[in-house]
Computed example of a mutant assay.
Amino acid sequence: MLGMGSALETLCGQAVGAGQLRMLGIYTQRSWIICGVTALVLTPLYVFTSPILQLLRQSTEISELAGKYCIWAIPQLFAYAVNFPIQKFLQSQSKVWVMTMISGVALAVHILLNWLFVTKLRQGLAGAAIAGNISWWLINLGQLIYMMSGCFPEAWTGFSVSAFKSLTAFVRLSLASAVMLWYVFEFYKRMRSKCVLIV
């Protein structure tokens, strides 16, 4: 999901550099469409986590716990689909402090919700997932309100049908970004394991 959303970083940087701020909103909407479809495609993996893990010879107890958590965490998957594009929209316009403040408030709420659901109400993994769902959607709500509040009159002009144009090219760029991030992650993993062996 991060890879699918990271294509937006390149496009937003180019749009800001070229002075085409209007395209930031269009690109963000395109990314929402692509990330939303990606979340939809990944949903069955969340639903069938338990049998998939058992098929991969994971213990029954761990498979069942992971499956239970994943079912409850499905709303977070769609929260990521909304969040990553908004992050790129705001980062490209140097609004990092706003994101930090919104995340700080959400973190405080998240701690409170975890205490409430996990400790007080004894909901365990399901409670942790519910707390995560609320926290992620709270971040999204805060960022969306800021994004659409009129602070970006040139970059956000509202929802547009232009977001549905050139989706194929956008998907190709998104997939390339996802593959690139995967390779970087794999390279980092290999280098880290070599460093551990040397030590």
Rank of each mutant, 00 (worst) to 15 (best):
M1F: 10
M4E: 00
G5C: 12
S6P: 00
A7I: 08
A7N: 11
L8D: 02
E9A: 13
E9W: 15
Q14Y: 05
A15P: 07
A15F: 10
V16F: 13
G17V: 09
Q20M: 01
R22S: 03
G25L: 00
G25N: 01
T28G: 01
S31R: 07
W32L: 05
I33P: 05
I34R: 06
C35L: 15
G36H: 00
G36M: 08
V37H: 13
A39G: 12
L42T: 11
L42A: 13
T43P: 14
P44M: 07
Y46E: 01
V47G: 13
V47N: 08
V47D: 02
S50D: 14
P51L: 05
L53M: 11
L53S: 11
L55Q: 01
L55I: 00
I62H: 01
A66F: 13
Y69P: 08
W72Q: 07
A73P: 03
A81S: 07
A81M: 06
A81G: 08
V82Q: 01
F84S: 07
I86Y: 04
Q87R: 06
K88G: 01
K88Q: 02
F89Y: 06
F89W: 14
Q91S: 09
Q91C: 03
V96Y: 15
W97A: 05
W97E: 10
V98W: 11
T100Y: 15
I102T: 09
I102Y: 10
I102F: 13
A108N: 12
V109R: 12
I111D: 03
L112P: 03
L112K: 13
L112M: 10
L113F: 09
N114T: 13
N114I: 13
W115S: 07
L116H: 04
V118I: 10
V118G: 11
R122P: 06
R122W: 09
Q123Y: 15
Q123S: 07
G124A: 01
G124T: 03
A126V: 09
A128N: 15
A131Y: 08
S135C: 13
S135A: 14
W137V: 00
W137E: 04
L138V: 09
L138Y: 06
I139A: 00
I139N: 14
I139T: 14
Q143P: 02
L144Q: 01
Y146N: 02
M147R: 11
G150E: 11
A155T: 05
W156D: 00
F159W: 14
S162D: 03
A163C: 04
L167Y: 07
T168W: 15
A169F: 06
F170P: 08
F170T: 09
V171E: 00
L173E: 08
V179C: 12
L181T: 01
W182L: 02
W182P: 00
F185K: 10
M191S: 02
M191D: 02
R192C: 04
R192G: 03
R192P: 00
S193I: 15
C195M: 11
C195P: 05
L197E: 05
I198E: 03
I198H: 13
V199A: 00
